[in-house]
């Protein structure tokens, strides 16, 4: 299970407060007497998909992609692919497509095997297959979340933090690609606002920037780093509005990066 652990034993001044006599007042980062943590929990695609469902009735089957089999032994590339496959699982859950979920469940096992994580992932993959047989979509969604969390936790346990970040990145790119596709097909301000995620993009850029030199030199990571700059620029909006053009730029950039990631794979 993925956790963001933080240990701090420092005596900091506690003058002033974001809490006043048990009631929260205003939060001013400049005056905050505590510690703002860097750790970020990246939302799963379902969080944004759930809102899109509330705002309309997207055709999630249209958003589903055909799976392909990994053609790489590069762990960094496999980690990016793993993230995209799990995100595809969330799309399949929205579409309530049993066959797609089963295929994705099997693909998850295949990639986990290539990453040497079969033991950790197999129970989740089995739970996904069991839950889909029972039409328990909520359980399937939860298992995809657990699968991703377990894989990242295993990677971090083995001090492969760069790989763990790649899993998150791949998942976010695929989730954002689907979300922007849905928004583009039925543009409204409410839907477009869901792409207001500059903090997440900054987080990913920072993560890539702090990767090892060998990781940063990976051709996919280099391309993603540049793509994130383009996406971040599209999210700069003084009034928080997102034009169809901005949505299109974010979508196109995600698609281009996903195409690069999936180029390491051959069609089934």
């Amino acid at each position: 299970m993925k956790v963001k652990t933080f240990y701090l034993f420092a005596s900091l001044m506690l003058a002033g407060s974001a809490f006043s006599q048990g009631t929260a007042q205003k939060f001013d980062p400049a005056q905050f007497p505590g510690y703002v943590m860097d750790e970020v929990v990246v939302p799963v695609p379902s969080e944004i998909f759930a809102v899109l469902d509330k705002l309309g009735d997207p055709n999630w089957k249209d958003e589903l992609r055909k799976l392909s089999t990994p053609d790489s032994s590069d762990r960094m590339e496999l980690s990016l692919v793993f993230g995209t496959v799990v995100a595809e699982g969330f799309v399949a859950v929205q579409a309530q497509d049993k066959q797609a979920v089963e295929e994705i469940g099997r693909e998850v096992i295949n990639i986990a095997q290539s990453l040497g994580l079969t033991k950790a992932v197999r129970p989740h993959a089995q739970s996904i297959l069991d839950a889909v047989q029972k039409d328990d979509w909520k359980a399937v969604r939860k298992e995809f979340d657990q699968t991703q969390a377990t894989v990242r936790a295993e990677m971090e346990r083995m001090r492969d933090n760069d790989l763990a970040q790649c899993v998150s990145l791949g998942g976010w790119l695929r989730g954002t690609s689907s979300a922007t596709s849905v928004v583009s097909k039925a543009y409204t301000n409410d839907r477009a606002e869901l792409l207001n995620q500059p903090m997440l993009v900054d987080h990913f850029s920072k993560s890539v920037g702090s990767m090892s030199d060998s990781a940063k030199n990976n051709r996919l990571v280099t391309a993603i780093s540049k793509g994130l700059v383009t996406i971040r620029k599209s999210m700069d909006s003084p009034d928080g509005s997102f034009t169809p053009e901005k949505i299109n730029t974010i979508h196109t950039t995600c698609e281009e990066l996903l195409a690069l990631i999936l180029q390491v794979k051959k069609s089934r």
Binding site: K4, T5, F32, E39, V41, V42
Partner: peptide, 16 residues
């Protein structure tokens, strides 16, 4: 499934 956790000095304010 993801969450934040840790150990900290009593009363220390934290923010995420």
């Amino acid at each position: 499934e993801d969450y934040w956790n840790g150990e900290v000095e009593s009363g220390q304010k934290l923010a995420v």
